[in-house]
C-alpha cells in the first residue's frame, strides 16, 4: 500500500499552529494506521519552501501522495471533512464509525 505523504504548513509557534499539528497527528494515528509520512513546515522559518509550493495561507494541509494532489485550508478539527477534502478514503476509524 502506498504511503500517504502529508505536509502541514503553519505560521509560527502559535496556539493555532499547535492545534493544527495535534489535529493532523490525531487524524494520521486514527485513520491512516501507520501508512503515512507527515511533515510540518513553519513558513516563518522556511519562507522559500512555502513560496516554492505557492502556499497562500496557513494552516494548509497538502496531500502529496498518493495522487491526486490535494490541499485544504482552515480548521482541521473535523476529521471527516479533512479526509473528504484530501480525497482520502480512511483506512480504519472512519469506516468503523460509519459501521456503527
Amino acid at each position: 500500500m502506498n504511503k500517504f505523504r502529508l505536509t502541514l504548513y503553519v505560521t509560527g509557534h502559535t496556539p493555532r499552529s499547535e492545534k493544527g499539528i495535534r489535529n493532523l497527528q490525531r487524524i494520521c494515528a486514527e485513520e491512516l494506521q501507520g501508512t503515512y509520512e507527515m511533515t510540518v513546515i513553519d513558513v516563518l522559518e522556511q519562507p522559500q519552501l512555502a513560496e516554492d509550493q505557492k502556499i497562500l495561507a496557513t494552516p494548509t494541509l497538502v496531500k502529496e501522495l498518493p495522487p491526486p494532489l490535494r490541499r485544504v485550508i482552515g480548521d482541521l478539527s473535523d476529521t471527516e471533512k479533512v479526509l473528504l477534502g484530501l480525497d482520502i478514503a480512511a483506512l480504519g476509524g472512519a469506516n468503523e464509525r460509519k459501521g456503527k
Partner: peptide, 11 residues
Amino acid sequence: GKNLGLPIMAG
C-alpha cells in the same frame, strides 16, 4: 489559477 486549497472548518 492558484491552488489556495479547499476551505474546511468545523461545523
